[in-house]
Amino acid sequence: MNLFVTFWGTLLDILPIATIIFGFQYLVIRKPVKRLGQVLTGFFMVWVGLSFFLVGLEQALFPMGELMAAQLTNREFLPSLAEGAQRHWSDYYWVYIFAFAIGASTTIAEPSLIAVSLKAGEISGGTIDPLMLRIAVAIGMAFGITLGTWRIVMGWPLQWFVFAAYLLVIVQTLRSPRSIIPLAFDSGGVTTSTITVPIIAALGLGLATEIPGRSPIMDGFGMIALACLFPIITVMGYAQIAQWRAARQSAARVSNP
C-alpha cells in the first residue's frame, strides 16, 4: 500500500520534467527524439528508482539519523549531572565527534568531488593538489555540520552563523585567485548528495527534539546550510595558501639560482 502511494506520488513528481523535455522537443525544436525506446526506458527507471529510494529513505536513513540523535543525547549516555546543575555544552562531545565523522567520511569519498578535484588540479597547472583540495572540502563540510550541531545545543539563532559565514565568503572571494571562485562555490553544492542531505536533516531535527529547551522548528534546520557554506570558505583558503606557497617558491628560486 505504502509502495503504491509512493509510486503514484513520484509519477506526479516526474511528470513536469518529462512534459517540459518532450514538449520543447516536439513543439518548439520539432525534431524526433533519437533512440526513443532507450529514452523511455530511462524515464521508467527514474520513476521506479525514485520510488524505491524514497521508501528506503523513510524506512532506513531517516530513522537511523533520528536514532543516533536520540541515543547520543540520552540522559544515561551523557556524563552524570550533579543535582540541580546546568548541562554544559561540552557534555555533548560525542554528538560533535559523530557529526564531524559523518561529514568528513561522506565527503572525502564522494565520486563527483574526486572528478572535480582532478580537473581543478589539471587546470591550475600543479599549484592545486587534488588530494589537498578534497581534504579542504571534507574539512569544510565536517566543520559546518559540527558547528551546526553545536548551534543546536546552544540554541543560538541560525542567522548569526550564516551571516558570519557569508561575511567570510565575501572577504575570501575578494582576495582569492579568480579562477578558483566558481569551483569553490560549486564545492559547496557537491558535498550535499542525495544520501547525506536526509541523514543530516534527520540528525538536526532529532537533536532539536531531544535536547531540553530546543524545538525542532526553531532549531532543527540549518545544518545543511552550514554544510554548504564552509567548504566554500576552506577551498578558497586552500587556494590562497597554495598561491602564496607557489609565489614564495618562485621567489626563492629567483634569489638563489
Binding site: G42, G56, E58, I195
Partner: peptide, 24 residues
C-alpha cells in the same frame, strides 16, 4: 527493516541515476 531499507536506497538510487543517464 533497516537492512531492507538500505537495500531499497541503493537499488533505487542506482536505477534512478542510470535512468537519468539513459533518458533525461
Amino acid at each position: 527493516d533497516l537492512v531492507l531499507g538500505l537495500v531499497f536506497v541503493v537499488a533505487g538510487l542506482t536505477l534512478f541515476i542510470k535512468g537519468l543517464e539513459l533518458g533525461l
